[in-house]
Design a protein around this nucleic acid. Structure first.
Lengths: 109, 109
DNA sequence: TAAACATATTTACTTATGCGTATATATCAA
DNA sequence: TTGATATATACGCATAAGTAAATATGTTTA
C-alpha cells in the first residue's frame, strides 16, 4: 500500500472519528437545517456552552463545518451537505440491522 | 429529544466509531471485493493475526460484517454494501476538502 | 488421542477521549 | 476604559480504546 493511500485512509478515519459521538451527529443534523450560533446550538441540543464549542472545534478542525464571526456571535454552518447524505446512509444500514436483529429474536423464541 | 432518538443516535455514533480506524476501513474495503478469511486479510493488509481478529470483532459486534465458519477457517463478509457507499461518500467529501485547501494555499502565496 | 493449523482472547500497559469547572479571549456599546 | 455578552480554552480527573505478546480455543487430520 502506498504512503498516499495510507495518509488518505488516515484522514478518512479521522472524519469517521469526528462523527463518532452522538452530540456531534446532532450538531451536524442541526446545521443541516440552517446555520446556527454556538449558543443557539447549545440551547437547541441542551449541551453546555463549553461542550458545544469543543465539539464544534473538532468538526471544524476536520473541515466538516465552517465558522464565520458575525459581530459578537460565531455562526457555524455545514461545509458539505454530502456529509448528511453519508450519515443518512449509515442510519439506513443501522435501521435494517435493528430490524434484522428483531427478526432474529422472533426466530429464537 | 426522545429517548428513542437518543438511543438511535448513540447507535449511529457507534457505527461511526467502528469506522474510526484506518485498518478497519481497509478491512471493509477488502471485504467489499469478496469474502476473506482472517489469515488472508491479515496477509493482504499486513496486519498481525490477533490485530486482524480484534478489529474484525469490533466490526462484527456492530453488525457491519458477518463471520461464517468454513472448516478450520472463518470467512468474513460485508453485511451491507451501502456501508461502502457511505464510506465512498465520505471519501469524496474528504477529497474535495483537500482540493479546496490546496486552492487556499495557492491563494495565499 | 496427538499434532498442526486457524482463530480468538487475555493480560498488562500506554494513549486518547470526554467531562465539569473555571477562566481566558473577543466584540461591542456606553 | 469599563461592563456585558458570546465564544474558546485550560486543568484535573475518569474512562475508553489501542497495542504487543502470550496463550487459549476450536477444528481437522494423522
Amino acid at each position: 500500500m502506498s504512503n498516499l493511500t495510507q495518509e488518505v485512509t488516515q484522514l478518512h478515519a479521522d472524519i469517521c472519528s469526528a462523527l463518532a459521538d452522538p452530540r456531534r451527529i446532532l450538531l451536524l443534523y442541526a446545521l443541516a437545517e440552517k446555520p446556527y450560533t454556538v449558543n443557539d446550538l447549545a440551547k437547541y441540543l441542551d449541551i453546555s456552552q463549553p461542550m458545544t464549542s469543543r465539539h464544534l472545534k473538532i468538526l471544524r478542525e476536520r473541515g466538516l463545518v465552517v465558522a464565520t464571526r458575525d459581530g459578537i456571535n460565531v455562526e457555524y454552518s455545514l461545509n458539505d451537505h454530502r456529509l448528511i447524505d453519508a450519515l443518512d446512509l449509515l442510519r439506513e444500514v443501522l435501521r435494517d440491522r435493528i430490524v434484522s436483529r428483531a427478526n432474529l429474536i422472533v426466530e429464537l423464541k
